[in-house]
């Protein structure tokens, strides 16, 4: 991933040509996509091999168990033969037991080798899976970068064909200020209208002229109270 990021940064620094147009490197993602497919193929193969090996191990386990069981049951036969004084028969059975044990040892040896190979293969699968995740992550970065460059190139072309050029930040700011001033004016007008509708504006004018109905009634009450008092 580090290599991909560094490559992208280098490309970005020099990616605008003299006309100011984005130079999109579509080669980058094509190579990554091929690597991704190879990695996926490798993983699939390794998994198939692994499944076959594991099946083989399971089969060996069954065969080993069979040989074990046979040896065990023959041992009981041999004991019975000895108990019956059939020395010759017991020897024959013992030879069979040796055969079973030899086969068991061979099968066990084969299983050890298979298990060794299984471990190696599991390792390969794990590495391939890690590699695959890495390629997917890299591909996503490269593809997103290509897409962003294509998109902005498309936007720029569009802006250039609709207007003479992209408006500058200063022009945009000016338009924002004009709109914000219009909004403030509207809000002020709304507040004024509200006052007129409720008569609040008239009350304010009367107050300004020193005419305050509320204050007058308070004064009236005070005067009456004072008048009631015995002097």
């Amino acid at each position: 991933m580090k290599a991909v990021l560094k490559k992208l940064l280098t490309a970005m620094r020099g990616s605008v040509n003299e006309l100011g147009e984005a130079v999109v490197d579509s080669q980058g993602s094509r190579i990554l996509e091929q690597e991704l497919r190879d990695s996926e193929h490798e993983l699939k193969q390794a998994k198939n091999e692994l499944a076959a090996l594991m099946a083989e191990v399971a089969s060996l386990n069954r065969q080993i168990k069979t040989e074990s069981d046979s040896a065990e049951s023959r041992e009981q036969d041999a004991r019975k033969a000895l108990a019956a004084g059939q020395e010759e028969l017991a020897r024959e059975v013992a030879e069979r037991i040796v055969g079973h044990e030899r086969r068991k040892a061979e099968l066990t040896q084969a299983r050890v080798q298979l298990e060794e190979r299984t471990r190696g293969l599991k390792d390969r699968v794990q590495k391939a899976e890690k590699q695959l995740a890495e390629y997917r992550r890299e591909l996503q970065v490269v593809k997103t970068n290509e897409r962003v460059l294509r998109t902005t190139a498309q936007i720029d072309t569009n802006i250039n064909s609709n207007q003479s050029s992209l408006s500058t930040a200063r022009e945009t700011l000016e338009r924002i200020r004009e709109r914000q001033a219009r909004e403030e004016d509207r809000q002020g007008a709304r507040a004024q209208l509200e006052k007129e509708l409720t008569g609040q504006d008239l009350d304010e004018k009367l107050k300004a002229a020193g005419i305050d109905a509320e204050q007058d009634s308070v004064n009236d009450v005070l005067a009456r109270l004072k008048g009631d008092q015995p002097s």
Binding site: R150, Q154, I155, R179
Partner: peptide
């Protein structure tokens, strides 16, 4: 926005700039 990829220009009311 005309072009190869699907791109939209969206003006949000109250922030049209």
């Amino acid at each position: 926005v005309a072009g190869d990829d699907p791109v939209l220009q969206i003006a949000v009311s109250g922030a049209d700039e």
